[in-house]
């Protein structure tokens, strides 16, 4: 793959490379450096911050919760987006236009706006509670906001386009005759989906899972607003340690551990998908 290129050919990439270096690589190096100090006053180099994290059940719990949140949201989005994508590809051009508009709409509005919409819906005096109370189905308002379920629900809706778009893309690229072939050979709808459509659109599903996982695990604003102060997750934990407690070395270590965890999970899902889709890229 590494054919030597004339140096001039890469010149147009130079500005981007400089920005990348200044805005990403240098801060990362700084972060690593900061995380290696033992005290908030930047005294004495040592891996103490990492040991502190590993020895602290609370910190480990926060990391586990955050990863779980990302996975739960990704799976919920997958389950919701598949039917949506199937309906999309089965529809005519008019309905498709309408659907794609609805799917893209969340991407066109700010995260803050979308999150506040969920606060309006889930709040103590929100739409759900007032509807259920006035219908007499609930005796007292349920706590939907500041709850784990509410957070998963809101994040799923907010990140749904990241799942729906790659899924729709891979369903559209799927040869319609494959589903017909399965059906003609005697497979019912469910069997044809499980044995043909699902495995062949797995790359799209995996791409969606990765995007939604990474986006949900790191969604600082939504996590903070919907979770309130009650649910502590890595992004807000890092914010609290840095801006609140001013323990920069620990915050830096938390950031790096969190980044490594997210990358690790993404790599694991990717490796799993390569094993599952062995035939697709077998040359």
């Amino acid at each position: 793959m590494s054919t030597p290129r004339p140096p001039g050919e890469l010149a147009p990439a130079l500005p981007l490379a400089l920005v990348f270096l200044a805005a990403f690589v240098l801060p990362l190096v700084a972060l690593v450096a900061i995380s290696l100090f033992r005290t908030p006053a930047f005294a004495e180099l040592s891996p103490a911050q990492y040991l502190r994290f590993l020895g602290d059940p609370f910190s480990l719990r926060v990391l586990a919760d955050t990863v779980m949140l990302g996975l739960e949201v990704a799976l919920c989005a997958l389950v919701l987006a598949y039917p949506l994508a199937l309906v999309y590809v089965a529809s005519g051009p008019l309905i498709r236009t309408g659907l794609i508009f609805l799917i893209l709409l969340p991407l066109l509005t700010s995260t803050v706006v979308r999150t506040f919409a969920w606060i309006v819906i889930l709040g103590r005096d929100g739409i759900v509670n007032s509807a259920m109370l006035s219908l007499g189905l609930w005796d007292s308002p349920a706590r939907l906001l500041y709850s784990w379920g509410g957070l998963v629900l809101a994040l799923t809706q907010i990140q749904l386009p990241l799942m729906a778009l790659p899924l729709i893309n891979s369903l559209l690229r799927l040869d319609g005759n494959l589903a017909r072939a399965a059906e003609g050979l005697g497979a019912g709808r469910v069997r044809a989906f499980v044995t043909v459509i699902l495995p062949l659109t797995l790359p799209g599903a995996i791409a969606g899972l990765l995007l939604v996982f990474a986006a949900a695990a790191t969604a600082f604003i939504t996590q903070t607003l919907i979770g309130g102060g009650r649910i502590i997750l890595m992004p807000s934990y890092i914010y609290q340690q840095s801006m609140g407690v001013q323990d920069w070395p620990f915050a830096a270590a938390l950031s790096l551990i969190f980044t490594a965890a997210v990358i690790g999970i993404v790599a694991a899902i990717g490796a799993l998908s390569r094993r599952l889709t062995r035939g697709l890229d077998a040359a």
Partner: peptide, 19 residues
């Protein structure tokens, strides 16, 4: 429905299951 007709179909592009 098609899956109850016991018809063997050979598609123009063969439509073999690639996986």
């Amino acid at each position: 429905p098609a899956n109850r007709r016991r018809i063997g179909m050979v598609f123009q592009n063969y439509a073999l299951f690639p996986h």
